[in-house]
Amino acid sequence: MEGNLEKTDEQVVKEILAGRLDDFGILVQRYEEKLKRYGWRFLSSPEGIEDIVQEVFISVYKNLKSFDLDKRFSPWIYRIAHNAYINALKKRSRDPLPFFDPDVLFPHPITPERPDRDLEKKEVRELLDKSLNMLPPKYREPLILFYLQELDYANIAEILHLPISTVGVRISRGRKMLQKNSNPSDYKL
């Protein structure tokens, strides 16, 4: 199993489907911490996260035959985790999550990704640590996936089932909200 650590996720899935069921442990090792971090941030609490992540892995295993081996595994497992976290959020939240979001209705100009601005990323990560809970879940989640899980817009769009332009808009608005909340006097658009 050690040699499998160099294999891609998709290759590992292929081997599990071929009958090497123990290789599922490799996927658990690779994604356990990432999914826990994503869940803690998104749900704003580590409470029950262990059970939710375990349920995610069980769901991944049960549905593994529906995974398209020509696609990337990472957005697929994050999508399952996203659904699990949304369900957990619905159970915990007093305010129901909105059924319909006007953001997805109309086209938005695509906000470009800015992967080279490391300083800005570091600043936003610090802001996320301080005041992520103040943001509504719809802005919180793309910020976590972009700044903390370091996924690109295309993957985030696939995980959240949103147009890429909407992902860009939410990240941009979320970032501005964070900056405004952390230091209203210095806030500049």
Binding site: L21, F24, E32, E50, Q54, F57, Y61
Partner: peptide
């Protein structure tokens, strides 16, 4: 560990 728990369920 989570890995053992999940593999235990599978096995």
């Amino acid at each position: 560990s989570m890995k053992d728990k999940v593999l235990g369920e599978i096995r």
